[in-house]
Simulated assay, not measured.
Amino acid sequence: MLSLRKAATSSLTALLNSIPCQLVRLASTAASAPNISIQDLEVSRQFLALPRTPLPPLSTLVEPAPKTKRTVTNETIRAQRNALFTQEKIRQIESVTRVEKIEVLHRGQPEDVTLIMNKNFSTPLHCAQHISEVLVKRSALAMVDGKPWDMNRPLERDCVLELQHFIQEDPNEANLAFWRTGSLILSYVVDRAFRDDYLVQVHSWPYQDIQSGSFICDVDLDMPEWNPKEDELRALTIIISQLRSRKLPIERLEISADLAMKMFEHNKFKKLQIPVIAEKSPTKDRVVVYRVDDHVEISSGPMIANTGMIGRHQITAVYPIDCHGIGRLYRFQGLAIPEQQPLNYFAWNILVSRARQFNGSPVPINETE
Results as ranks from 00 to 15, higher is better:
residue 109 Q to I: 09
residue 81 R to G: 01
residue 215 F to M: 08
residue 76 T to H: 04
residue 155 L to V: 10
residue 221 L to T: 00
residue 110 P to N: 03
residue 35 N to V: 10
residue 173 E to G: 05
residue 302 P to Q: 07
residue 248 L to K: 08
residue 286 R to H: 13
residue 61 L to K: 02
residue 146 G to I: 14
residue 91 R to F: 15
residue 364 P to K: 06
residue 124 P to I: 01
residue 140 A to C: 05
residue 96 V to R: 09
residue 139 S to Q: 08
residue 154 P to Q: 05
residue 49 A to L: 15
residue 21 C to P: 02
residue 304 I to A: 00
residue 12 L to Y: 08
residue 256 S to Q: 07
residue 272 L to K: 09
residue 271 K to Y: 01
residue 308 G to Y: 09
residue 142 A to D: 01
residue 237 T to L: 02
residue 15 L to Q: 03
residue 147 K to Y: 13
residue 193 A to V: 05
residue 296 V to Y: 00
residue 367 E to C: 11
residue 143 M to N: 05
residue 355 A to C: 07
residue 92 Q to D: 12
residue 260 A to V: 10
residue 336 A to C: 11
residue 49 A to W: 14
residue 325 G to K: 06
residue 122 S to G: 07
residue 302 P to A: 10
residue 368 T to H: 13
residue 204 S to G: 14
residue 354 R to H: 09
residue 353 S to V: 12
residue 192 R to Y: 11
residue 72 V to I: 14
residue 183 S to W: 00
residue 63 E to H: 05
residue 129 Q to A: 08
residue 351 L to Q: 07
residue 264 F to G: 04
residue 50 L to F: 10
residue 33 A to K: 03
residue 365 I to N: 12
residue 107 R to L: 11
residue 275 P to H: 08
residue 312 R to Q: 11
residue 318 V to A: 08
residue 300 S to Q: 15
residue 281 S to F: 11
residue 173 E to A: 12
residue 321 I to W: 03
residue 98 R to A: 13
residue 182 G to L: 00
residue 164 Q to G: 02
residue 178 F to I: 04
residue 329 L to A: 04
residue 245 S to V: 07
residue 117 M to F: 07
residue 191 D to R: 09
residue 183 S to T: 01
residue 319 Y to A: 03
residue 21 C to N: 07
residue 190 V to I: 12
residue 210 I to L: 14
residue 160 V to W: 01
residue 332 F to G: 02
residue 295 H to E: 05
residue 183 S to G: 07
residue 210 I to S: 09
residue 13 T to H: 13
residue 224 P to V: 04
residue 179 W to M: 02
residue 28 S to G: 13
residue 294 D to Q: 09
residue 348 W to G: 08
residue 110 P to R: 01
residue 87 Q to Y: 10
residue 11 S to Q: 06
residue 109 Q to R: 12
residue 362 P to Q: 11
residue 187 S to V: 04
residue 268 K to P: 01
residue 189 V to F: 06
residue 249 P to L: 07
residue 105 L to G: 02
residue 64 P to W: 04
residue 229 K to G: 14
residue 185 I to E: 00
residue 193 A to I: 02
residue 127 C to A: 15
residue 330 Y to R: 01
residue 13 T to N: 13
residue 16 L to M: 10
residue 2 L to P: 15
residue 193 A to G: 03
residue 334 G to I: 00
residue 140 A to G: 10
residue 35 N to G: 12
residue 274 I to P: 02
residue 69 K to Q: 07
residue 111 E to K: 04
residue 118 N to D: 14
residue 5 R to T: 15
residue 192 R to I: 15
residue 124 P to G: 02
residue 43 V to A: 06
residue 328 R to P: 06
residue 179 W to V: 00
residue 121 F to I: 14
residue 53 T to P: 13
residue 53 T to Y: 11
residue 208 Q to A: 08
residue 143 M to W: 05
residue 20 P to Y: 04
